[in-house]
Design a binder for these strands. Structure first.
Lengths: 324, 324
DNA sequence: CTGAAAGCGCTTACAG
DNA sequence: CTGAAAGCGCTTACAG
């Protein structure tokens, strides 16, 4: 038999569809007898309400779009996992939009999400140029990315993170630590802190940015060139993967870590922590970032026009391993 | 103005909703003039068809459920990324079900997916006990997991992988390499190959299974205990994270790699390759696994009752680093 | 306490 | 070539 519908349940229970619907939604007064009969029919038929039909009526689809560069990256994988868990706790389902590090796809996804009537969007991609977020009349929450005046952003304390990392490198004896980061723009708080701390110690900041779109092997080549050129005795990488490239370079070129080069990463995802527990890094509260983003979005869905106070940045922590 | 609907477009273009629908779906004969007027109205209003309403009519929602233990694990993150990319190419959207390594959630998700009328499911979780897959009257494709007679499974060549890893360890001089794996059951082809190769070389197989549900730090403790106890001079871990635990143990206890202990992992996800390029591992064709699973599912959705030939396993490759 | 009817935003026979 | 009407599977005023 085809998938049973409300009508089938009603027929079997000998009541109207209205009544079945009411039992399902626990709405209005129902005699216990009716309730029992309906529930029996539901069980017997293995009936399961059609969420699509429900979405069409109510204004809610129960769907939330999660937009990320790619879940192949452990940081985003973990973030998405945390968001999804939290979302599920609130009764929402996650439509995954893996942009594959590609700005064009992000714009397409934005369209698709609206066509599918998602109730809201959580986004954490790099392409601030992608238009559409401002036009979308949907609750949106950004993770670690400024999208516009009206879009709240959940993030770790990047200022503190940059400070902790740089201070630590200097405390461990580095006199010429360089910063490796994706893009060096004014909004890069980790870079800002690095510069401030370096200057405060009378050291010259040196920032190298490889760009988001750079293929991994090209990034590795850049990193190795920079490390060789600058004669850096310390590395602050704003993500762990880049820090590991520095580690690998040290291994290959016979430099000792941390004696010759001290290395500090950023993110501290569980995968990296498990695989390379010795890496000194700034641990982000990934779980909390995800949970907070989900909570904030759920709140905005419930009250789209409520004022949103700026989100205080979530605390980060220096985790010291043997690389520094 | 509220989100425009078909009616609004029709009114603006001065035609019936039927006509607009036909233009949208490019169905039947339309005069160029009409087509132009309708398209103009669509643009002016910024109309976007409601995917939910469409799903309710057609039998298709365009949604596919992806069920994985967790995308926080780089292997699954990468797999999901590949699946999603491929699915998007076929016009499908991905509903992400991150089971958080929890069997109960998997069963719930199965329910949820059916309620949401997904067109199919791709699953790659461990809990074979979870009932429901057989009852679900949906096209399902499994990745590296046997779910039932009628459910096709896409997988890497685990027999070959186990053989390659074990032969390699022995070739590199290991005489007492142990196997570290999640569960040691007859369906574990990597373990089977390990045993065969060991026996063929007159060596005694030693298998240690930590169990899927074991928290990471407990797993680490187990691994370290086993390595110390067995005096292994080689490690074949059926996933890279466990291999890295062995590496970390060697580092901590002052053993040289590969002279004292040779280490081989499994999976070779991009994240691990980037972070720890020196790790010898069996590289799985993650991209192909994802693409093939998506293609197979799309085919099954198109022809649910077609015979399915057993899937030939996809080739794996030994990647040699400095850990062996 | 329960039901008949309208409607969510579309598509698709069926007429013309 | 174009439109009026029924219907996808539900929910929700509105009656009774």
């Amino acid at each position: 038999m085809a998938r049973p519908k409300l009508q089938d349940v009603a027929a079997r229970a000998g009541v109207s569809v209205t009544t079945v619907s009411r039992v399902l939604n626990n709405r209005g007064y129902l005699s216990d007898d009716l309730r029992r009969r309906v529930n029996a029919a539901i069980d017997e038929l293995g009936y399961r309400p059609d969420a699509i039909a429900r979405s069409l009526i109510g204004q809610k689809s129960g769907l939330v779009g999660i937009v990320v560069p790619t879940v192949a990256d452990p940081f985003f994988g973990e973030l998405v996992s945390a968001i999804e868990r939290s979302l599920a706790g609130h009764g929402y389902k996650a439509l995954l939009c893996d942009c594959q590090e590609n700005a064009a796809r992000e714009a397409e996804y934005l369209d698709l999400l609206q066509a599918n009537r998602v109730d809201g969007i959580i986004t954490s991609t790099h392409n601030r140029e992608v238009a559409g977020y401002d036009r979308a009349e949907l609750p949106i929450v950004a993770v670690d990315r400024r999208l516009g005046a009206h879009i709240p952003v959940v993030r770790g304390d990047n200022r503190a993170g940059g400070r902790l990392a740089t201070e630590h490198l200097i405390a461990r004896g580095a006199r010429a630590p360089i910063l490796l980061t994706a893009t060096d723009h004014p909004g890069n708080d980790r870079a800002t802190s690095y510069r401030e701390v370096m200057t405060a110690h009378g050291l010259e900041p040196r920032v190298r940015a490889y760009g988001y779109a750079t293929p991994v092997e090209d990034r590795r080549a850049l990193v190795e060139t920079w490390l060789a050129e600058t004669g850096a005795d310390g590395v602050f990488a704003t993500d762990d993967l880049t820090a590991m490239m520095a580690l690998e370079w040290a291994h290959k070129t016979g430099r000792r870590v941390p004696e010759d080069v001290r290395v500090v990463g950023y993110d501290g995802s569980a995968a990296v922590r498990q695989g390379v527990p010795g890496l000194t890094t700034i641990g982000q509260p990934i779980e909390r970032l995800g949970a907070r983003a989900a909570q904030l979005l759920v709140d905005r869905i419930a009250a789209p026009d409520a004022e949103t106070a700026p989100e205080p940045p979530l605390p980060v922590a220096l985790r010291v391993g043997w690389t520094s």
